[in-house]
Structures are given as structure tokens and as C-alpha cells.
């Protein structure tokens, strides 16, 4: 994850309390989604950014996951996201995200 974004995630978690935060991702594929999820839960796996070694354990979802999709207005979802469900490998994204959440999510 971009270093500046890591800095912002860290600062916002401190400001609002990590239990009040939800991170929503739009990554193009499973592995990238998993890496971003890992960054905001277990810490930056590349050890390059401000979240290296920082285990925030934030709640994190990809926007195409059913947990998010079920709670948002379906008309807006259709207009903004639905086409990409045909483009992205949503199953693979869900699999990667669930694995990371099960292991590292604290909230």
C-alpha cells in the first residue's frame, strides 16, 4: 500500500479509535486485496511503510464482498460497481479477504 495512505490509515485509527474504523478496498485482484488487507490488520508485509510492524487489526472489506454489497443501496451499487463484477475475479477476492480477516482482524 502507498506509504502516504498507510500514514493516513494509522493517524485516522488513532484519531477515531480502531474499533470505529472500517476500511473498504477496491483492489483489482485477490492477491492485491489480500496484501492491502494484511497491511491494515497485521502490518505492512513489505516493511516499507508506517504500518510496518503495526497490528491495527482493522475491520476490512473489499467493496464487492456480499457483507458490503448487502448494506448499500442496490441502485447505487448497480450504477457504480456492478459492471466490474463481470471483470474482477470476485470469488478469489472474497477468499483472500476472508483468510486475512479470520487471521488478523481484531474487531
Amino acid at each position: 500500500m502507498d506509504l502516504e495512505n498507510q500514514k493516513r490509515v494509522k493517524a485516522l485509527a488513532e484519531q477515531y479509535g480502531p474499533e470505529n474504523i472500517i476500511v473498504i478496498l477496491g483492489a483489482a485482484e485477490g492477491e492485491a486485496a489480500g496484501l492491502a488487507a494484511e497491511t491494515v490488520t497485521a502490518g505492512d508485509p513489505t516493511y516499507a511503510g508506517p504500518l510496518a510492524g503495526v497490528q491495527l487489526g482493522l475491520k476490512v472489506y473489499h467493496v464487492c464482498e456480499p457483507e458490503v454489497k448487502d448494506e448499500v443501496d442496490s441502485a447505487v451499487y448497480d450504477e457504480q460497481i456492478s459492471m466490474m463484477e463481470m471483470v474482477l475475479d470476485v470469488d478469489d477476492i472474497i477468499k483472500e479477504m476472508s483468510t486475512i480477516r479470520d487471521e488478523y482482524c481484531k474487531y
Binding site: 483492489a27 483489482a28 485482484e29 492477491e31 492485491a32 496484501l35 459492471m83 466490474m84 463481470m86 471483470v87
Partner: peptide
């Protein structure tokens, strides 16, 4: 982790054609 960019673009155009 950026996927296959041209292929994703073609899938988008194809998905649009399907929609």
C-alpha cells in the same frame, strides 16, 4: 497485483456490451 490491465479493459468493454 495490478492484474492484466488490457484484458481488464477488454472485459469492461465486453461487460458493457452485455449490459
Amino acid at each position: 497485483g495490478a492484474g492484466n490491465v488490457p484484458e481488464a479493459n477488454y472485459k469492461m468493454i465486453g461487460a458493457l456490451a452485455a449490459m
